[in-house]
Design a protein around this nucleic acid. Structure first.
Lengths: 352, 352
DNA sequence: GTGAAAGCGCTAACAC
DNA sequence: GTGTTAGCGCTTTCAC
């Protein structure tokens, strides 16, 4: 870490007594066997001794590879994403790639400018966790030379590989759990319908209700404008104030995610209702700490780390020119798990 | 976003009917005034029309600036860090710099290899949030050409600029709050002493106790081996089991951070003690959701976003060759705030 | 198996 | 004000 001029390949070559080209070949694992074992060793030792570190920009300029991968998330402070980042970073780093994280602040405009900026950087590939259901940018990206993999949120076109969670099964697990507790009148506070997760969960909910032969009704599925606590609270309030004209029509609520579920909890206590005695509640994601709120949330756990890991691996195969082409347009759904805690209980017995 | 060969400076120059060198000058804001307004306009229009995006690697190779800034955090999934990342990224992006995030998984070895890897990339500067109190790597970094700014955690040498929170005042606020509630026998479950935050808070606690003339005693300050819930729980258990020989000697606990505080909560309920009736508890950091645990945590809120923001600005001035040199070795402490919730209450009245 | 030489796309020092 | 030229540090043909 000295302040001196950085040692370059030519220095190593000089010390090893070979030509820079040879030194390059000796140092690159792929071309190493074009060089005699003895030379290779000498070069390696010289590099070691001088503390040679290749200049990534020079190499990148020559090879047209930056070894940079961009990961685009809507909001790093949403605890959903850091585990994905971590999972992705681990496999990327192991492959010699550097992860560049960008937060789009939930804005499509910002997303576009970020992606453009990264492309200018010569980014090798993208991991995109911000997909909206109709997404022009991603449609363009699908046609572009820079490979991209969708993570967590899918897009309508289906022109990009996708790694996500098995949302559908998650919702079914939630509904089955409620049914097994004796619930029949179940509502859903779904997430925004411009995201695949919001859509999938709402669709799966309707399907599960039908499949179990449960009653349906007006306002049974409501949409929150965002995956946030305030949005969940506002929508839940609307669900609850409707009951003025009779008893609460629902004994259980499936929330679009944990944040929405927390909002529901707020609205419930404002309305003087108790969870789970009056209303059972299931969340989605199993965020940290939702096991410590009151009541601890029954929720669906996603394998976030594994999702990041697999998305990175998927990108890696698309980055590897030696990989068999095959069908590159995979959609992989990772298994989810129901985590039962204290926000679900048998429904209140009908008063009689 | 077409698949075709990327347009380069020479293409723009050809279309504008000038020499590449001139095009370069016209496009660069700094050298723009070396070129006639008319030429500059023509070049700009050609660039626009062709969709020219400069090749960052070629430019970087030439100028020896990568426009990459590395941010090193111990664990992205710790909610303490994402807001700092966000704050830093915002100012960096505005300055045309790209943030590279690396997670060291709390390991010094990993930190070293990451930093080395990023230096190989020709990183322009570092934002380091992983500092340990004795940190060889940072001592080396202080002597290196790549500027670095410490964030959140300081290091012993003091050879690097630092941006953090006013920990000392935070602890004083916590102790004052407890004293004003009537507490006199206050214990501290401090964080690991190989971090500045752990040390500062423990030191400030002792100072506050002394300043208020409060009783001291054996085992009043205990150290958790990590800033985690299990570490907090384990250390709290030791604090609590000692009371077999008499009444609980402490009526309040100041925790090294919120995670430790959550561990204390666990240990408390295991021991059949109630917070805040039996013991009051103050955390540190005001993590998301600690307002929703039982009981909602009284804690010290840090301006995490502002810390990231300011650390990035600090790095920016060190990156700017035109900036006045001045004393570059600043230590800036941002103001903190006491957030009173339900984990603190007057001490139990002495039984009489 | 190794040396020579070209060139990735850009900027900056030097001419004119 | 603009053209010319060299070169950042590396990889990779092409010779031999």
């Amino acid at each position: 870490m000295a302040r001196e001029r950085r040692v370059k390949l030519a220095d190593v070559a000089r010390v090893a007594g070979v030509h820079p080209g040879t030194a390059s070949r000796a140092l690159n694992p792929v071309t190493r066997d074009q060089v005699s074992r003895e030379t290779s060793r000498r070069v390696a030792r010289a590099a070691q001794r001088l503390g040679y570190v290749p200049n990534a920009m020079a190499r990148g300029l020559r090879t047209a590879r930056s070894h940079l991968v961009g990961m685009v998330v809507p909001d790093v402070t949403n605890p959903l994403f850091p585990p994905m980042v971590r999972g992705a970073e681990r496999v990327l780093a192991a492959a010699g790639l550097t992860l560049v994280l960008t937060d789009t602040d939930n804005s499509a405009a910002s997303e576009r400018s970020q992606v453009l900026r990264l492309r200018a950087r010569g980014i090798d590939g993208f991991l995109i966790a911000t997909a909206r259901w109709e997404d022009d940018l991603l449609a363009e990206l699908a046609g572009a030379a820079t490979p991209a993999v969708l993570l967590n949120r899918d897009t309508a076109g289906g022109r990009l590989p996708y790694v996500g969670a098995d949302e559908r099964t998650g919702v079914h697990l939630a509904v089955e759990h409620l049914v097994s507790l004796g619930h029949r009148r179940i509502a859903c506070l779904a997430g925004p319908q411009d995201t695949s997760t919001g859509r999938e969960r709402a669709g799966a909910f309707r399907q599960a209700i039908r499949q179990h032969g449960l009653p349906t009704g007006r306002g049974q599925v409501r949409f929150c404008p965002a995956f946030t606590e305030p949005a969940g609270a506002a929508t839940a309030r609307r669900l609850l104030t409707n009951r003025r004209h009779g008893p609460l029509p629902w004994t259980a609520i499936v929330a679009g995610n944990d944040l929405i579920a927390l909002g529901v909890l707020d609205a419930l206590s404002e309305a003087g209702l108790h969870c789970p005695t009056d209303v059972s509640l299931v969340g989605f994601n199993d965020l940290p700490m939702v096991d410590r709120v009151t009541p601890p949330l029954t929720t669906i756990r996603l394998p976030l780390d594994a999702m990041g890991d697999l998305a990175a691996r998927t990108l890696l195969t698309r980055l590897d020119p030696t990989a068999p082409p095959g069908n590159q347009l995979t959609r992989t759904l990772l298994a989810v798990e129901l985590t039962v805690r204290a926000s679900t209980a048998p429904p209140p017995t009908e008063r009689g």
